[in-house]
Amino acid sequence: MIQNKSTYTEFIKSEAIRLGFLSCGISKAGFLEEDAPRLENWLKNNNNGQMSYMENHFDKRLNPTLLVEDAKSVISLLLNYYPEEHQNPEAFKISKYAYGEDYHFVIKEKLKELLFSIQSTIGDVSGRAFVDSAPVLDRAWASKSGLGWIGKNSNLITQKVGSFYFIAELIIDLDLEYDNATTDHCGNCTACIDSCPTEAIVAPYVVDGSKCISYFTIELKENIPIEMKGKFNDWAFGCDVCQDVCPWNKFSKKHSEPLFTANSELLSMSKKDWIEITEETFKTVFKKSPIKRAKFLGLKRNIDFLQ
């Protein structure tokens, strides 16, 4: 049995790498003091649009000890999804994170395995796994854990591999050694702000979610506002513009997760194929894809709006 904080920490980080995570950072569980006013202002300015769920569990979002009883540590993990192949350049565009299987299921399995390894090796440890569907400020914790800094496009960025990765957490009731935050390396660059097709980055480090193409094509359930016509640059599900133009993403490395392998049918689809897609094809091609979240009618709405 492992018996000290330093060895616990080393073991958890090596297990995370064994399970395919890009990196692992650990922070002391507690109230996110610096993030509280930021979140409050963001909500006050209605930057969440119709994502009303962002207003729920305000306290829990800022304090993981309210989510996990006796929580001591927040283990933040990154999982690379940068694809080897890309879509037909003439087609409507899909965010790269949606090329393969739904990340929620892929990551949840890895987190369960990590928790099982911790319990088997260390002993009686309780905790919960989180993959962006719970009230946890993923980027804040990953940044606090030294995995990167939050850039002007509000994504977590690292010098070594850019920003094409998912963030997940394991919150556990075990004391560990904690990492320190890294420094901001955006400098004077404003590439993401200058390139956003809908001007959703309203100030450095502030994204108005209600103006983001990802919001319109995934979260919004009603008709897309007519004033957005012609501004989507052919994005039918999500948008990668602020990441594609980020200089740090020239260091992106291809992922090694088989379940994220791009769906070959999706990659080869032409604009005509997208326009003529049937519900049957949608169900077959996107059976395990995050694109299912938009539902067939939502995707059709997006494609109609782009024409």
Rank of each mutant, 00 (worst) to 15 (best):
Y99K: 10
N180H: 13
T182K: 14
V161W: 15
K144Q: 13
I213E: 05
R128Q: 15
A98R: 07
K211H: 02
A91E: 00
V206E: 14
S95N: 12
S154F: 04
K144H: 14
K96V: 08
L170P: 03
E113F: 01
G187Y: 11
A98G: 06
G209K: 00
T158K: 04
S117C: 09
A140L: 06
N88H: 05
L137K: 09
S133F: 12
L147E: 04
E169Y: 02
L114K: 10
Q159T: 11
Q159F: 00
D102W: 09
A168M: 04
D194M: 03
K108Y: 09
C186T: 11
G187V: 12
E177T: 11
Q87W: 00
E90H: 06
F130L: 02
G162S: 11
S163M: 02
E109V: 08
I118P: 02
Y205Q: 03
S145D: 07
P89W: 03
I107L: 12
V207I: 13
I172M: 11
I94L: 12
Y205G: 01
S154T: 15
K160E: 15
D208L: 00
H104Y: 14
E169K: 02
K93G: 00
I193A: 05
C192F: 06
T198A: 10
H86N: 14
I150C: 05
G127M: 05
K211W: 01
V125S: 05
D175H: 10
F164P: 01
I94Y: 07
K108H: 12
G127S: 04
L174P: 10
N88G: 02
I150R: 13
L176H: 07
C192Y: 06
